[in-house]
Design a protein around this nucleic acid. Sequence first.
DNA 1: GCGGACTGCTTACCT
DNA 2: ACAGGTAAGCAGTCCGCG
Length: 899
Amino acid sequence: MDQSPLLQNNKQNLTYWKELPENTRVMLISAIYSGENQKVQLKFYDPNLHLIYFWQDKTDHKPYCYTKFENKERVEEIAAIEKKFELKTVPKMDLLLDKEIQAIKIIAPDPLSIGGKGGIREKLNVWEANIKYHENYLYDTRLIPGSYYKRKGDQIIEDPYQMSDIVQNALKNFLWDKMLESKEARNDEYRKYVREWADLLNQPIPEMKRIALDIEVDSEEGRMPIPREHDRKITAIGIVANGGFRKVFLLEQDKNHNDGTELIPEAEICKTEKELLEKTFSIIRSYNVVVTFNGDDFDLPYIYERSQDPAIDPVKHTIIPKEEIPMVVKRDSFIKKGIQAEPVQLKHGVHIDLFRTFQNRSIQIYAFSHKYSEYRLNAISEALLNDSKIEFEGNISDLSIQKLAQYCLKDTELTFRLTSFNDNLLLKLLFVIARISRLSVEDLSRVGVNQWIRGMLFYEHRKINALIPHSEELRNKGQVSSAAIIKEKKYRGGLVVEPTPGIHFNVSVVDFASLYPSIIKVHNLSYETVNCPHDSCRDDPDQKIPDTTYWTCKEKKGITSLLIGSLRDLRVNYYKQLSKDKTISLEERQLYTVVSQAIKVILNASYGVMGAEIFPLYCLPVADATAAIGRSIITKTIDKCKEAGIEVVYGDTDSLFLRDPSQGNVEEISKWAKTNQGVDLELDKEYRYVVFNNLKKNYLGVLKDGTVDVKGLTGKKSHTPTFIRKTFYSMLEILGKVNTEKDFDFAREKIKDIIRESAKKLESAKYPLEELSFNVMINKSPEKYGKKTSENIRTTSIDGHDSTTNSIKGIPQHIKAAKLFSDNGRQIKAGDIISYVKTKTSEGVKPVELAKYEEIDTEKYLEAMESTFDQLLTALDVNFKSIIGKPRQSNLDELFWSN
DNA sequence: GCGGACTGCTTACCT
DNA sequence: ACAGGTAAGCAGTCCGCG
């Protein structure tokens, strides 16, 4: 077995800053505020020796916030009474007014004096009081998580890696040649942004020494142990680290839990839980990064609480002293309601909870292209690693010690591999996002994308000495200009072109490369530049945004426009090229691929957050204007196509489907778009043919190489019963082989055969029940459904019964099924996928596990097949009903209902 | 009392 | 806990019919 050198000497790898040799390059990985010391503490990582250097502020930096001059008297009054604040008048840039103002800086002895109970925030209109102190600290010192530093005396000095000549030259080319074509190239400010991003993002990312950790706890069936109660024994702790280190500590068990087989070699049996915990702690101490799956709410708080419970030492009833535990309870964090665990933080390392990270929609969709759709370890592992947990029947507490060891170690291994697969993709991604968002990985892996962009923008405000506005100040920036199509939406979004129904050969798809970020860049969109205070801009017709009442600023570049625009250009014109450049090392190329991916995540969200209330710089006019310009660009491009005689058969937001264009056609339009609209229109895909029915966001396309692209069709949707989906995909296989108009005749017949066969299999009960299930996710807890209708409230309150058919009326089918499940004692919670079949029972549905074949409503399934397949068949001029014959009593029905 | 038109709710998808 | 637009299925209400 590969033994980790770190484990052998068991050295606590936490070292103080003064011990860091000068000129050793270390990376900033964490920043926290220690309430105990009232100081910010930083952790730096030495990528060679894998040590953490620990730094505590000595600069006497203090928490603070601002107020405006109009509050001078009031703030002086407060300061005179409370005697703990220091006031300073300082110049600040007010971006909304585009002028310098005098602000009063209120300096406090501790963060609670500002944001705590009775803090200044409650007494006065203050600015920048909602920023966590450790974030403030990073902004002010310009320290960026994920960046490299070195020690000089007591100080922290920037110490970036040098870029290689190739990369350096590519950047120069980009800055001086590529960009000279555009207006921005002549803008030094813009060039400075590009340069700074590249300097930051081109830094290599080291492989971090880390462990994955997973605990198993003795528990009753169907009830999760609660950390706060810590009343259940810890029976196993698995640890997997880099370099092949694997270990599982097991609590000694009685004979009933021994199946006589041999234990896996990684197993080590401990006499008591105390011993088990002590051994685990000593390993945790020797690593810098700890990875768990749901460790925030379970594993970490559980082992912490349990270590303080005398039950872990049955003989002497002693606990583990707090100094020996590598964790502390996070006291400064605000207490969330209803949580089951006190948050726990690692003392010297960094803890990443993958459960939370994979739940992040941006990670799920943009980083992993929606490969997983459930947030369980097993589902994510299956999707990303093609591996799964060890399955077992019954209760985990009944497993033999041998099986438990295997099970626990497997979970731990999967957790580790989620951070290591694809050349440590996830961790690298997180570190690049840390650099962009100015948040530590510890912080950013637990928050949504709006906080990432918040971090990027807040940092920038500090950098240019601009006061960060209140969200209320951004609410009076103008009326919404374009009403949404969907009610309950705030403004109108992208334009969807009505598809031309039918089969079209040789269709080219062109799309605008990151359209919204381009618009934000080209049109100088930012909260302070949309409806800016300058009369000259307001009165200039060139500054007007088409189809809206908004105008934009020509006097000054907006901060969002600069940041998003420079990132966009870097991605499109620099990182994408570098990631393919064979003259640089594979390792570097991989970094640039990751950087490009991380920027994509940020760009994709940058427009969305402007229209999201939770975003601190929420500014509806910016989002509204962005979408309006997008509609204007696509509309004008369509007009231009028509003018040039190019037929547009479909389009959605930023894409156009052109029917049989020449290469010259595409070039012409693309050039036109660049010159007249300032956006890049690129050839995205070339379809051999595309099939449209009359529905938007619904089509099938076969690429030149025979790959079949399906969008939006029901046959693709995850809730569709497997047998229908499988039949649908075999239809697609046929269509992938179609090359010419003539081939369709054959394909049509093949498809009819497939459908007939499938219908026959259905009617003769040949499909396993599981293939008939609809699989629908429940997004709320089951009780929260069906409360809106008065009818429903009345029936439940009158008869009082819960499980009568009355009380489950007015409730979606998947919830009905879920309720039948919980009647059977199984817990259903938000995020679960309910698998149910359609039945002839009074409810009309039943969970698959509880259903019998004779209850199946075959007619309903034929209807489902019909509606699913008709989306394709209508375009192929085939009729479902005529294939399987008229609706009739199915064989199955006759069989079961006659006797 | 019945059925079709309509609305609202929910989910899954597209960009 | 980033946006809006579209489709589909179900459940319920409204309204006219005769």
